[in-house]
Design a protein around this nucleic acid. Structure first.
Lengths: 187, 187
DNA sequence: CAAGTCCTTTGACAAATGTCAAAAAATCAA
DNA sequence: TTGATTTTTTGACATTTGTCAAAGGACTTG
């Protein structure tokens, strides 16, 4: 629970009571490499925190996988649209390595947020940060050439390049895996 | 203030007092077509609500305008990254038509959110909704062909196509304006 | 170790899109 | 209205990227 504690304490506002009731609802889950945390067309009932490991979110378009994001230790993850709307989502979330997670059920989170305003405050700030990150991702995705997008990823997220396959990275960067392979050959 | 009242009341949880203190901090602003709400490299001190009109956010890459979003009556708008971090941002926000807005200063919003937990609750839910919208935009931006991206915009946001120029729409859809013009010729 | 599977690279070619330039159309201002 | 300015369309061609196919490596498992 080291990483989770660290992440929540960074805000420095939660009372012992708040911390206690929050941790009480977070239960540990371990999933092996290659297994799925969330499958498309199901409703995401849990929000997860990644204690250790790496995961990938993707959906299918024309029978091809399109990677939306990679997530790491210290990140929260779920199918946001499904979790928030409490309806079926379009994402698959797959463990790229063995993962230690903590999960909290939608209902538990909602009741915590309603009853503990400090927690809602933190949740709000996290949402803001995730929003900004997503906005940055949208901007990077507009970089003109395939090579620019790859070099930017190499600079900002080398962990992704180390651990994901060429095909997964290519689908994240909006290019064919052959194109990515050729770009790598020139560097 | 019709649209703003409607938007806030949709949540149905704010007391008379909350509503009153919120509206008290929202001051009306009118800006003419072609003027700027926010310029790049400045800090966005205000969050705006669009009562009427339409605006465009964009930044520059290789001396070309890249459109990030179009916003309409009923939307909140600002340079989110700049407003949240309270540091210089990369976006320009330009009025595509005469606009009636309400603005709230960063400090006023923060103190409202700290003192009124119902307001923070609404703000949190709005953030969730904007997050999901952004995620959808990211997914649409990955549609493979230029024509698919255009047709999707035509289906989901015809107002954009009616009111923005070919160049602005093309930069939003990640294609050259010539390509967009040719796509339109075939429909 | 060998066979099988999966992932990555390379090649040849096709298709999509970008670029530059000019013409046509629309908009604006006097 | 008319001339000027801006926006959109069209054409010719270059470039980038995708697709299909095959070969080469790496990894797994019996």
């Amino acid at each position: 629970m080291k990483k989770l504690t660290e992440t929540v304490n960074r805000f420095n506002i939660l009372s012992e009571d708040s911390l206690h009731s929050f941790f009480a609802k977070m239960s540990p889950v371990k999933i092996p490499k290659g297994s799925f945390l969330i499958k498309e067309n199901t409703t995401a009932n849990y929000l997860y925190f990644i204690e250790s490991g790496m995961l990938r979110s993707y959906y299918f378009a024309n029978n091809k996988e399109v990677t939306i994001s990679f997530s790491f230790s210290g990140d929260f993850i779920t199918s946001m649209s499904s979790f928030i709307k409490q309806g079926p989502g379009y994402e698959n979330i797959e463990a790229l390595e063995d993962c230690e997670l903590y999960q909290i059920h939608y209902k538990d989170l909602q009741s915590l947020l309603e009853n503990d305003k400090d927690l809602e405050h933190i949740y709000r700030i996290l949402l803001e940060q995730y929003y900004i990150k997503l906005e940055e991702q949208l901007i990077f995705s507009k970089f003109k050439t395939a090579k620019e997008r790859y070099l930017n990823l190499l600079k900002d997220n080398p962990q992704i390049i180390q651990k994901a396959s060429v095909g997964q990275i290519a689908s994240f960067l909006d290019m064919s895996l052959e194109t990515l392979s050729r770009i790598r050959a020139t560097i």
